[in-house]
Design a binder for these strands. Sequence first.
DNA 1: CGCCAAGTTGAACACCATCAATATTTGTGG
DNA 2: CCACAAATATTGATGGTGTTCAACTTGGCG
Lengths: 260, 260
Amino acid sequence: MPDNLLPVISIRSLHEVNCSECALHPVCLPPAVDETDLDQLESIIERRRTLPRGTPLFRQGDAFQSLYAVRSGAIKTCLTPPDGAEHITGFYLPGEIVGLDSLGRTHHGSSAMALESSTVCAIPFAQLETLALKLPGLQHHLFKLLSAEIHSDQQLLLLLGKRSAEARITAFLLAVATRHKRRQLSENHFHLPMSRTDIGNHLGLAIETVSRVLTRLQQTGVLEVDGKDIRILDRERLCQLAEPAAENTDGAGINVRKLS
Amino acid sequence: MPDNLLPVISIRSLHEVNCSECALHPVCLPPAVDETDLDQLESIIERRRTLPRGTPLFRQGDAFQSLYAVRSGAIKTCLTPPDGAEHITGFYLPGEIVGLDSLGRTHHGSSAMALESSTVCAIPFAQLETLALKLPGLQHHLFKLLSAEIHSDQQLLLLLGKRSAEARITAFLLAVATRHKRRQLSENHFHLPMSRTDIGNHLGLAIETVSRVLTRLQQTGVLEVDGKDIRILDRERLCQLAEPAAENTDGAGINVRKLS
DNA sequence: CGCCAAGTTGAACACCATCAATATTTGTGG
DNA sequence: CCACAAATATTGATGGTGTTCAACTTGGCG
């Protein structure tokens, strides 16, 4: 059998791509481990799973088994308090890891659902944890992923606690743009996988407000908005809107001793 | 030298208490490791440090060296975006670990400051990380601590995104009460270590709103408020206020297929 | 005793939520 | 491919919750 029999490779690439062949290689888990140890990581990662739009990946209260790396599509995670009003805690794009908030727990503390037709790789946590004991780089990377998750939550806290509707939405768009750039895609023209309702829920705004702000940004020539298609026309202005100048240095500080 | 020379022991207990003797033993790190390995953990923990009120423990941008276990007092952590308006991301009470959000990073992503005269134990992270490779229980516990941190941030997100001023404050008070109970202290009568300004900043409310809500809760007989001293008089009512019934099951769900 | 920081209380306004109507897109079946 | 229904998004009018501005009170500390 000639070793240039390409079809075999492309079928593999559709169904069982291993990490070293995956296009998301540079933004996913692999950079965390040595080339030489990559096969150990690959050996525990389960063949990817396909999720039609709207399919739950896991639900709050489910036993925690795996982390999931998003390969294509997009996932949202929701927190459902007893009273039923859900809150979307995050959106996950290709190359990002879903489920970190449940790591180390027995059960999932949130639910995850595909926003559009998506594929994910499952990473069984029990095996990952064991492997992390052997591979210091992997353990370290897991810590980094977790602290990154905390940071993104804290950025959102800041947004919800202190910013106007306009600032929340512009900051959100810029964050999505940055994550697109990370995958070598355009940072000025992208498709939002989530609905206006989802954006509003995530940012603590009414859907009407989201709609109005987007319209206004379009009218002022900052954006071009076509449904879920967004094009950034005036990035500088967008950044200004996302981080309103702070005349008020009220400060959460007890002592506002400027650091010398 | 007689081994019942108590003064020596009590001096130790003031300045260098080791974990096994520490009153916070059950709520801090030690439960994570086997009795037999506790000395390994203790050997890397630095002698406790005293912080007068208002002293920074670390500042955003400082090199990340250590985690800190709060022994006494209280610590707040702040995020300072470029524009200067700080946001308090969390409060840390005795037995809790500060600095987890920077774990795995080279620099601190937030600042920490003592709210009142406090003492902390420093846990050098480089050594902790190495130790975690040898002690599976410790690694697992670190993961748990990180996911708990994420959870508390997400609870706050929910609060800031969806709840009224009254619900934010009542939920906040209940959370503080729960953390007191964890330390075997009264869950119905406690002292808030932070100012109204800090509470407002943390919950995304104006200080005046905090004041008004507390006054109202006092007038309706739910609380007794005396400055920073809080006494819960009607816990049931307080819980009701913290989780307003949800008529609107609007749902962040694409498919609201009830789980069968 | 007097100063300054922190907290309380009141009045007016602003931002955003809500309600309501319309428009647009998506999905489905003829 | 078109027509229809359902879901989603847009736009307008109105009102409420919480912010802002301001005056005043209280408490800690020299």
